[in-house]
Nucleic acid binder design. Structure first.
Length: 926
RNA sequence: GGGCGCAUAACUCAGCGGUAGAGUGCAUCCUUCACACGGAUGAGGUCACAAGUUCAAAUCUUGUUGCGCCCA
């Protein structure tokens, strides 16, 4: 047995040690053995960006997934937690381009080949930082199977998927209005664009109407007027009835523009009620253009500069053009003022640039035929979404799904396997890295499409491309479909929905049985974590501890320290009482905390105080075990609960069973909050607060039989409880479990032991009922002692008057327990009506009259007030119950058991009143 | 504008048809031989508002108000 436990729980060394131990012993490995007949549990890890680093969202996700993984492993499943990393096309390319920019270089200076080499180099430099950080969190992924989305095998799968979809007509190339990132100079899918409300202005200017007069339009983007091909008004707007069918004249370009009526685009109450329409650079306008067959006039080039269509404004950058246009309108006397306006600005998720709607030729996935089966799978319950409210969101998105633009004008990624023939204009689409000749005419004058695929296209294949697809491998058969897919709801559309579509299409069945969605980690006040707000917390700072000064320097780099600290404290009010740093809370405390939030609330307001509290819980576990270790030596721990005769032992085994059943249910139903709360309550509230306290007099007694029984029950329960908690807090449970007596033949690690399920304890409802009475009686004495300010060290005589003979006999049995926790030297059990000495306080619980003799212990009488208070409370309850019973229809329409229960409650309260009332004099006899 | 969701103790949140729960915080007492990262006790809530369904509503329905998020 290892060295003695330290007085307090110190996570750091333990965590390092056991993670290495698990890896050494291959604890995380899934089995490929053909004869392995265990049921399978497969969880594909949402792949982090290869160059990324761990944030709070990862910590939450990884923790939840590892709990699921560990629990299933302990339930006897052949468990695969499939790890991997994503090449993250645009994100990675943007970072490397920024690095080049420092040397005043662009990717074009290097050329495609050299640039890609450079990205690979950087990937190497980042190494496996993210993976190491995930390991700090204790993830039990099968790291030997880790897959990178640019691996040769995975790349082949990506090309295969593209080629097949293309041949089936589900991928096509077309010119469409898309979102254009002028910085990265690539198209983005609508999901990669985030719109945020920002300050802007609503600018008004007048278009001269042909034949005289003018119409004033309101716009947030005056520069796009260069591409206007209509002015729209509401057909019912009486202000403009006279203008129906007329034209306006473009002030800068030689163009006549129609005035059209459109009830969909125009809100007559907004702005001037007249809207300029730019179909080539706005999605709503594009649709309007379709409805009215308007001309599409493109006015920007790829860098966001005005093109030749902009006449004298050509060459100006977008925002310069805005100023120039406003100036020009002003000069022509057409400006009609402006006002401040909040508007949604769409920005690229990766570069932060305001994206530009542009017309462009791109590759698209035809989503509707793919979405149908994906929708069906959820509707029929083949795939279940939890929490279920998300099913509605999924349904809504899938039924309104748009075609998915999958080409990107980037270099880092899977190059589109399409070759254009210069001789015959045929497009060859084949699964190959290079192609020699056109498949149609045989010409070698071909060139490959320059673009790469959207990263999400490759990750959509994750559940099967990781297992060897398109080959029919043993792995693929064994580990597809996955069991659960767990991820943040923010990538429900990006990733989950697309995996559903691809999985169903290529494999014929949905990629997972359940989709589990967790919430977003936000700061303590409910705000999103962001670099701008300065409220980002690095999970490693919580695990290893960190001065707040360090924390905020990372959260708000470059900002003055005072300011950063102020923002941080505001975002995390609970740190006010924490001094100047996070202590090292350890992975377990962080994991437990993250699991304790309900998945139903969409936000998880991270509270450092809560993590601190859960480190205290770990410390409690540590010390309770330290206490137990002093007594459990030589205990026999078998596979089943030991025999128990003592009430505390019988009770504990029943409560153990209850706790484990509920914890298991919580895990099964994706309610880790319930599971952790129950285990917390059992360990602290029952095992520590009651059982350990009550075991002390047993261990101190002379009697060997009860001592041995208690020793065995304690050892058994503690060992089982550690197993039940292991999925949530793997490190501390392993450390302590290794030191406890265990059943013979226990595995090398708690991670491979069995998760306790129903039957781990022993059913004993009588014990629970009796123990509740003992607890209530002890509580009554404690309350009286506390309220009458009896010194905690003082021993006071207690008399219990009990009418029920069976009950009195039971309490007599528990004399030792009660004497210890009541701190009494003289406990007497008598029948009601039996004589009693003078002076004291009275309580009444569970049919037991509790008399605490205070004569000579407290000076003054003064019990009357307390009794009056109790009586008043009881009377209030009686009134409510009587009212309920008397209410018309209750007796005959409510279920009989409810009526009976109500009557019993009423009787109990009346008895209580009778006893308390009779005790008034007793209280004044001091 | 469309969709989804939330309003419960000072704070953060569970509960979702039978007379309100947890953690933290607060108050009082206790350094008792596992733990002061501890123990005991206590205070604190017309469950946003209004109407309805029901024998019974924090819990179901509708409306109102306030607040989030997603999509446009």
């Amino acid at each position: 047995m290892a060295e003695e436990l330290s007085k307090g729980f110190e996570p750091k060394e333990i965590e390092r040690h056991w993670y290495a131990y698990w890896q050494e012993h291959g604890v995380f490995a899934a089995s490929d053995a053909p004869d392995d007949v265990r049921p399978r549990y497969v969880l594909p890890m949402p792949l982090p960006n290869v160059t990324g680093s761990l944030h709070m969202g990862h910590a939450l996700m990884c923790t939840i997934e590892d709990v699921l993984t560990r629990a299933h492993r302990m339930l006897g499943f052949n468990t695969l937690y499939q790890p991997g990393t994503d090449h993250a096309g645009i994100a990675t390319q943007v970072v490397v381009e920024r690095q080049l920019k420092r040397d005043n270089l662009t990717r074009h200076d290097l050329g495609r080949e050299k640039f890609i080499e450079r990205v690979w180099e950087w990937k190497g430099e980042c190494g496996s930082r993210i993976v190491e950080q995930q390991q700090v969190l204790g993830l039990s992924a099968d790291w030997d199977r880790s897959v990178f989305t640019m691996d040769a095998g995975y790349s082949r799968a990506v090309r295969e998927a593209f080629v097949r979809l293309h041949h089936e007509g589900l991928i096509y190339r077309a010119k469409r209005l898309i979102y254009w990132d002028c910085t990265a100079q690539t198209v983005l899918s609508n999901l990669e664009v985030d719109s945020e409300e920002e300050n802007g202005e609503l600018y008004e200017f007048a278009y001269p109407v042909e034949g005289g007069g003018e119409i004033v339009v309101a716009t947030t983007r005056p520069e796009t007027m260069l591409g206007d091909s209509a002015v729209a008004i509401h057909p019912d707007d009486e202000r403009y009835t006279a203008l129906h069918g007329k034209f306006v004249l473009h002030p800068f370009l030689d163009r006549k523009i129609p005035i059209v009526c459109d009830a969909i685009l125009v809100d007559p109450n907004f702005g001037t009620g007249a809207v300029k329409v730019t179909p080539a650079h706005d999605f709503n306008d594009f649709e309007t253009g379709r409805r009215h067959q308007l001309e599409l006039i493109e006015i920007f080039d790829a860098e966001g500069r005005v093109n030749a269509a902009g006449g004298s404004f050509a060459g100006l950058e977008r925002f310069e053009a805005r100023k120039a246009i406003k100036r020009a309108l002003d000069e022509r006397g057409l400006a009609r003022g402006s006002k401040n306006h909040r508007l949604m600005i769409p920005r690229s998720q990766r570069t932060g640039t305001v994206v530009e709607p542009m017309l462009s030729t791109q590759w698209f996935v035809k989503t509707e035929p793919l979405a149908k089966p994906a929708l069906e799978a959820v509707r029929t319950g083949k795939t279940v979404i939890l929490p279920e409210e998300w099913a509605k969101t999924y349904e809504h998105w899938m039924t309104n799904i748009l075609d998915w633009c999958i080409s990107r004008q980037l270099w880092w990624g899977h190059r589109i396997p399409a070759w254009y023939c210069e001789a015959c204009a045929h497009t060859t689409v084949v699964n190959a890295e290079s192609l020699a000749a056109c498949e149609k005419c045989g010409s070698d004058s071909i060139r490959q499409d320059e673009d790469v695929l959207d990263t999400w296209f490759s990750s959509a294949l994750w559940p099967f491309a990781t297992q060897g697809w398109p080959d029919d491998t043993l792995q693929l058969r064994r580990f597809y479909p996955a069991s659960d897919l767990e991820t943040g709801y923010d990538i429900l559309f990006f990733w989950v929905a697309r995996m559903m579509m691809m999985g169903l299409h290529f494999m014929g069945e949905p990629p997972f049985k359940r989709i589990l969605l967790h919430s977003l980690v936000v700061d303590e006040t409910g705000k999103k974590m962001s670099k701008v707000v300065g409220n980002v917390i690095d999970p490693l700072d919580l695990i290893y501890g960190s001065e707040f000064e360090n924390v905020v320097q990372k959260a708000l780099p470059g900002a003055p320290l005072d300011e950063a600290l102020k923002k941080f404290k505001k975002a995390y009010p609970s740190t006010a009482s924490m001094g100047a740093s996070f202590e090292a809370y350890g992975t377990d405390a962080l994991r437990w905390t993250l699991c304790s939030y309900s998945p139903h609330s969409k936000r998880i307001p991270l509270s450092p105080k809560k993590i601190e509290g859960n480190r205290h819980f770990c410390n409690k576990i540590w010390n309770a075990t330290r206490f137990a270790l002093g007594y459990v030596e030589g205990a026999t721990v078998g596979p089943d609960a030991p025999k128990a005769t003592l009430l505390i032992n019988r009770w504990l085994l029943q409560r153990l069973d209850d706790a484990c059943v509920e914890a298991k249910r919580g895990i099964d139903e994706f309610r880790f909050d319930d599971a952790t709360a129950r285990l917390y309550q059992f360990f602290w509230g029952e095992l520590c607060d009651w059982y350990l306290e009550l075991s002390k007099p047993v261990f101190a007694s002379e009697d060997e039989a009860p001592r041995n029984e208690t020793r065995d029950v304690l050892a058994y329960t503690l060992e089982a409880t550690l197993r039940a908690m292991h999925p949530f807090i793997p490190f501390i449970t392993e450390e302590l479990w290794q030191r406890l007596p265990k059943p013979v033949g226990s595995p090398v690690s708690i991670a491979l032991s069995a998760l306790p399920v129903a039957g781990v304890g022993r059913a004993d409802p009588d014990a629970v009922r009796d123990m509740a009475i003992v607890q209530a009686v002890i509580g009554a004495v404690r309350t009286i002692r506390s309220e009458r300010e009896v010194h905690p060290g003082a021993h006071v005589p207690v008399i219990l008057r009990v009418g029920d003979d069976v009950l009195r006999a039971m309490l007599e049995q528990e004399r030792m327990s009660m004497e210890t926790l009541m701190k009494t030297s003289s406990l007497v059990l008598i029948r009601p009506g039996h004589e009693r000495p003078d002076g004291g306080a009275v309580g009444h619980v569970a049919g037991v009259e509790v008399l605490v003799l205070l004569k000579g212990i407290v000076e003054q009488a003064g019990e009357t007030a307390r009794i009056e208070r109790e009586l008043k409370k009881a009377q209030k309850d009686i009134d409510a119950l009587e009212k309920k019973l008397a209410a018309k229809g209750f007796a005959d329409r409510a279920p009989p058991e409810v009526v009976k229960e109500t009557e019993e409650q009423l009787a109990a309260h009346r008895e209580r009143v009778r006893v308390l009332d009779a005790a008034r004099s007793f209280a004044e006899e001091l």
